[in-house]
Every structure is written in structure tokens, then in C-alpha cells.
Design a protein around this nucleic acid. Structure first.
Length: 289
DNA sequence: AACTTTTGACCTGCC
DNA sequence: CGGCAGGTCAAAAGT
């Protein structure tokens, strides 16, 4: 008991995130984000996941991990509170990106264009900002990636693979590789993450996992939401890496290679090309505003 | 031995 | 002002 009590104080000295009291908290979707101070940077990391139109990784115009003053909106709401894959059509084009997350096994035969993407014009990046941020060449600080679940086929394949449904395997078809484990690291994006928390949200069907970039001093965080069956449905990134992506060949073969690849590519350098691919951001960019 | 994950409690913001 | 929900911490356990 007292234990925890002292923590309140101790907590203030977070291991990472040096004290930067310029801003209160740049991100903080509303929770008690006390971990980051103003040194939270724009989310470059994630740019990766999205559009594949990255810049040549050799020499990006701007260091992806460049640190800069953050003037982002104080409260960034990445995703509608009760957003779920089920409600795929955000009322307002929130900057979220859906990526093909299909296991390579199926050759990514997943519908790459979710309904809402077709219905709504892709948000532009950078989104129109009313503030000085408008001039910022940096990618959004935070953004979410929505990962569609496997489609029907995949579900069936999984079922048959797991439970022998329709026991007879079509000899002609190659056996689908085992589905990715329900629990695993979120998208392998070349960075290393450490899980620091998990929380069962009120309306969520499955707990939300919180990850931090393990790089010393790197403020980037990642929030992973999974569907009831354990598949990642959404990844929200917060902040920007302040370090280059570690060279990692043959990446730890996670189950999310596809995403990883996409992510890694963009990671090298956010470019204007990512625009259409990247949505995210907050009210600032909301057309309604 | 080092690092990551798990887990329960605490903290903060919002309603 | 109080309650709720979300986010984070840190000790313990596991790999």
C-alpha cells in the first residue's frame, strides 16, 4: 500500500523522457499521460505503416527522427473513443489508416480498400491546420492504423486449420500456414518495443496493449488494440522516434511482416507522398472544424 | 544476467 | 465534487 503511495512521487521521474517542460503534454488522448513532457515529437514512426510511397531511404530530406518543437494540439484524439472495426466509417475522416494486414499466406488477398476509404476522400496530409503547425513538414505526431481482420476466407482457413472444419484439405491448395499467434508483438516496424501495460477498456472486446520504444530516451509509444479473436485491429502511434530505425535484417519474423515492411519503408522518411495514405491527426485537421 | 511481459494499483482528465 | 475511464508505473514473474 504505502508502496504505491510513494510511487506518485517517484513516478515523476520517468526513466525516459527528460524533463522538458515547455509544454504540458502533447499527446494524451485524455488519459493520464504523465509520462511524456513536451519533448514528445511528431509521430514519424508510423508514417511508415501507411502509404508505401516513402522517400528514398538513403537520404531523406529530413531526418525522420528529427526532433523539433512540438506545437501540436494539446489534446490529440486519435480515434473515436468507441471506434471499432465494426464501425468502419468514422463520422469524420479521422486520420486513420487501414493497411493490408493479411498474412502473407493468402497473398494478401484482403480487401485493401475498406468501405470508408472508398466512400470518403482520403484525407490530405498534411491536413489543413489553422495554426502554425500548418507549416510543419513533419508528419503527424500521432496516428492510428486500422487493421482489418481477415476476411471470410481467412476465417475459414483458420477454422479448418485449427479445428479441422471441412477436414478434407483440397489437395490442390497449399496448406495455409498457421495463423499468426493471437498474442505477439505488434507490427514489427524495425523498432523494438516493450510492453508496459495492458488495459481492458470498457467497451473493448479485448484488452488494449501499450508499448514503448525501448530505445533510450525515445518517447514513442504504441497502443495496440485487438479483436476478440486476438487479431490486431488497430495500432495507434504516439510521438516520433528520436533515433534512426535500428538496422534489423531478417526481422524477428513476427507475424506482421507485411505491415512491418510497409512500416519500415515509410519509416525511412516521411514524404509528401504518404499524404493520401496517412490520415490521422486530430481535430485540427478535421474538415468539420 | 538481462530483458520483456504480466498485473494490480495509482494518477489524471473528462463528464 | 465525485465517479468513471483511460493511461502509466513498477514489482514480480517469465523467458
Amino acid at each position: 500500500m504505502d508502496d504505491r503511495r510513494g510511487r506518485g512521487d517517484a513516478m515523476r521521474q520517468r526513466p525516459f523522457a527528460p524533463a522538458a517542460q515547455g509544454q504540458e503534454r502533447v499527446f494524451d488522448g485524455g488519459g493520464g499521460g504523465q509520462a511524456f513532457g513536451g519533448d514528445f515529437d511528431q509521430g514519424s514512426s508510423l508514417m511508415a505503416l501507411l502509404g508505401a510511397g516513402g522517400v528514398s531511404s538513403s537520404q531523406p530530406p529530413l531526418p525522420t527522427w528529427g526532433v523539433e518543437d512540438v506545437t501540436a494540439a494539446p489534446a490529440i484524439n486519435l480515434v473515436p473513443q468507441s471506434f471499432a472495426m465494426a464501425n468502419y466509417a468514422p463520422a469524420a475522416p479521422s486520420y486513420q489508416q487501414t493497411t493490408s494486414f493479411a498474412p502473407s499466406s493468402l497473398g494478401g488477398r484482403m480487401d485493401p480498400y475498406p468501405p470508408y476509404l472508398l466512400a470518403d476522400p482520403p484525407p490530405q496530409w498534411p491536413p489543413p491546420r489553422s495554426t502554425a503547425a500548418a507549416a510543419s513538414p513533419f508528419p503527424p505526431q500521432n496516428f492510428s492504423v486500422l487493421l482489418p481482420r481477415y476476411d471470410q476466407d481467412m476465417q475459414q482457413l483458420r477454422a479448418s486449420a485449427l479445428f479441422g472444419v471441412g477436414s478434407s484439405q483440397p489437395h490442390g491448395l497449399p496448406l495455409p500456414p498457421p495463423p499468426p499467434p493471437a498474442i505477439e508483438q505488434p507490427a514489427k516496424d524495425g523498432y523494438s518495443w516493450r510492453k508496459y501495460g495492458q488495459k481492458q477498456l470498457k467497451d473493448a472486446e479485448s484488452p488494449r496493449s501499450y508499448y514503448k520504444c525501448t530505445r533510450d530516451g525515445c518517447p514513442v509509444k504504441k497502443i495496440v488494440e485487438r479483436s476478440f479473436d486476438g487479431f490486431i485491429t488497430e495500432i495507434t502511434y504516439k510521438g516520433r522516434h528520436n533515433h534512426p530505425r535500428p538496422q534489423e535484417r531478417g526481422h524477428a519474423g513476427g507475424g506482421n511482416d507485411a505491415l512491418a515492411a510497409a512500416e519500415a519503408e515509410d519509416m525511412d522518411g516521411p514524404s509528401d507522398d504518404d499524404d493520401d495514405a496517412l490520415h490521422e491527426d486530430d481535430v485540427d485537421g478535421a474538415p468539420g472544424m
